[in-house]
């Protein structure tokens, strides 16, 4: 079970990085999450998550261009690695498995 560890926020970050594909860097990821999920994301939380994911080998990064509004600081673009992809798939499949294991009745009682 410990094979792929991916927290909830980490999963969101991974997915977002996937969505943004070549354009995933700090600010764009933050904005994407904020827009899509309508939740506030602090720079700190996001950067920590990105660093952790990079350390785990789920993401890899490359230096990007430096623009004026960034006060000459380079962007750091993130990309999902093969391992990261597997981790995401694993997360999804475990979730699907769990979903499919829920008896129909249980869900019905919830809705009523």
């Amino acid at each position: 079970m410990k094979k792929y560890q991916l927290g909830e926020f980490e999963e969101i970050v991974m997915l977002t990085v996937g969505i943004l594909y070549n354009e995933a860097y700090g600010v764009s990821i933050k904005k994407e999450i904020e827009v899509r999920l309508a939740r506030k994301v602090s720079v700190g939380a996001l950067q920590t998550a990105l660093k952790r994911l990079e350390d785990k080998g789920y993401l890899k990064s490359r230096e990007g261009e430096a623009t004026e509004e960034r006060a000459g600081r380079p962007k750091k673009y993130f990309q999902i690695t093969a391992l990261g992809k597997r981790a995401m798939e694993y997360a999804k499949s475990t979730r699907d498995e769990l979903w499919s294991a829920i008896p129909k009745m249980a869900l019905k009682t919830v809705t009523t």
């Binding site: 933050k30 600081r73 962007k75």
Partner: peptide, 16 residues
């Protein structure tokens, strides 16, 4: 190792 690009992010957000 993180300083440059996080600072960049912060600056970009700030300017916006």
């Amino acid at each position: 190792q993180l300083r440059d690009h996080i600072e960049g992010d912060l600056m970009e957000l700030y300017n916006e």
